[in-house]
């Protein structure tokens, strides 16, 4: 995680969302015109059990500040 004192620093969050629940939930958030911060990037997986620990480590290696696995 970059150590920074910048006030406008925003974390970069990578999310692995299950197609059948959380991804659909994120769709529903959109359909319901809810609003959330734009620093989350969603990757669709067929099930949260598809998320290999390697994917999470790779995200951190590539500069993600947080990883969210939801299913």
């Amino acid at each position: 995680m970059p150590v920074t004192n910048e006030k406008d620093w925003e974390p970069k969050i990578v999310a692995f969302f299950c197609n059948w629940c959380s991804y659909a939930g994120a769709d529903l958030a959109g359909v319901s015109r809810m609003s959330y911060p734009p620093n989350i990037r969603i990757i669709r997986v067929p099930c949260s059990s598809r998320v290999h620990p390697r994917f999470i480590l790779r995200a951190f290696e590539r500069g993600a500040d947080g990883v969210l696995v939801s299913g």
Binding site: R41, R50, H52, G63
Partner: peptide, 14 residues
């Protein structure tokens, strides 16, 4: 949803 495809996605999105 192969390992290779998923890792490419992670790389691109980060």
């Amino acid at each position: 949803f192969t390992n290779e495809q998923m890792l490419a996605e992670v790389d691109a999105i980060c």
